[in-house]
Design a protein around this nucleic acid. Structure first.
Lengths: 260, 260
DNA sequence: AACCAATGGTTCAAATAATGAACCGACTAG
DNA sequence: CTAGTCGGTTCATTATTTGAACCATTGGTT
């Protein structure tokens, strides 16, 4: 692993649950020497990517990321387009819609939209990291990822989030085959106990998978009718967003939607 | 310069005007070898900090920065606080208020607020980089920066933005002395010909300068009364924001405001 | 069609920068 | 007073980064 990758990996340990981390902790989390971690943090700090908290000890993400995010959004209004598509999808299904993006070997939430229809709804947290094996979005993305990436992901330890989470690589590969056939991934209680979710992958101009759009509903509310509605609407919105972003679905993908 | 700093410096060459840059161009801009640039970009790309455009050639900022920005926002609601303070300042003065942050040796716009009162107003662009010597914000920040940073900035070539831009390091140092005495920087036509702006620095918990808050008005509208109003309100809002962010003004700084 | 000058990407010996064990001084808890 | 943290620093060893030269392509010019 290159030095730059190590430095960037430090940034991945910050989360909503853990927004500030001390030097020693961070070194432990990242599996790096304390001195190395310190030097990397110093460079990140000079660039404004991290800063030290008011009381002078712990580190947290710095203001530079705000600036870059503003520029990114100006160059590619993806967040904006995603928000619009999600709102429409959520309105059509009356359930929670969300979208995640692939970044390296990680899948992270970009945005989500709730429906006002129901009092109970599946709630999401943005910038959250999604497990590939435990979420419909993860399965949708993984199914269309290169074989070596699938091997990498499935050879790492797979967390058993709930009692229904699939953790057997062989079983997961079988599921992925199914996803490749239908173009749609489904997960019942794999991430949160009472959530039934569907996901459809998104593609770039080279037909590589870049993320997934998903609808999450409480298990209790799922009926055959709702399922049909979700599948149709999700398919429409996901392929529509892929096209709107200048991407193309792989050969034969469109036919799958018609079959569903 | 460390490898990480070089990689991060690549990201600084993306701007609103130049959101996509080719490998060779970027190598030239950054003053690095093409092979080096390629390797660094590859690492950044794997982390999702840059990506290649649909047609497969040029590089642009990637989605990872969005994720980090979301986390930063959640951890430090600075942008919100800044927006609120700017709106209030703009309402009080009926002129454009804006705020910029120091990131390494660069000063960049974070946010701004316009007043609806006047038809003509000074317009701003966010994520813009501000020159230290040509803007009131830059002078305010520089005046309270460490001597070695002042030396670094003033020894680099100083762009003559307008005919009124100060470019003589000796003259600028004299201006900085004045700013240190009053705690307030002023620039008439230094950045844009017809703009009269005032700025007050912002500080962190270690009383180090982190940026500046400023009010920009058309030269034609500036009167002694408006000037007094701007100085008073700007001072109030800037010191208030510094406090709200957990920062502290340096010794004696508070007294300066009373004098102004 | 031949040519030229770019482009993005790759290679490998040489040079440089990253590394990590040990060490500070400061602090906290027992 | 001791033991165990913490953030930060040092420096000889080591592994990584570096850059000139090299492809294969592409697009424009003659």
């Amino acid at each position: 692993m290159g030095t730059v990758a190590k430095a960037l990996s430090l940034l991945d340990h910050f989360s909503r649950a853990r927004p500030e981390i001390g030097l020693s902790d961070l070194a432990r989390l990242a599996g790096l020497n304390k001195a190395t971690t310190y030097r990397l943090l110093s460079e990140l700090q000079h660039g404004g990517f991290v800063e030290q908290t008011g009381t002078g000890r712990e580190y947290r993400l710095g203001p530079a990321v705000l600036r870059l995010a503003a520029l990114r959004e100006a160059a590619v209004p993806l967040r904006d387009m995603a928000a619009r598509a999600l709102q429409s999808l959520s309105d059509a299904t009356h359930e929670t819609a969300h979208l995640s993006l692939l970044q390296g070997d990680r899948l992270s939430m970009l945005s989500y939209a709730y429906s006002p229809r129901h009092g109970t709804r599946v709630t999401m947290e943005d910038a959250q990291i999604l497990a590939f094996h435990a979420t419909s979005s993860g399965l949708a993305v993984l199914a269309f990822s290169p074989p070596e990436m699938i091997d990498r992901i499935l050879s790492a330890p797979l967390d058993k989030r709930t009692e229904d989470t699939l953790t057997d690589p062989v079983a997961i590969r079988a599921v992925l085959d199914g996803v490749r056939h239908t173009g749609l991934a489904e997960s019942v209680g794999g991430f949160e106990k009472d959530v039934h979710s569907h996901a459809v992958p998104l593609f770039d101009a080279q037909t590589r998978v870049i993320g997934a759009m998903a609808v999450a509903a409480p298990v209790a509310r799922m009926t055959p009718e709702l399922k049909t509605l979700i599948r149709r609407e999700l398919w429409q919105h996901a392929t529509g967003l892929t096209r709107a972003l200048g991407g193309f679905c792989p050969e034969g993908f469109v036919a799958k939607g018609a079959a569903a």
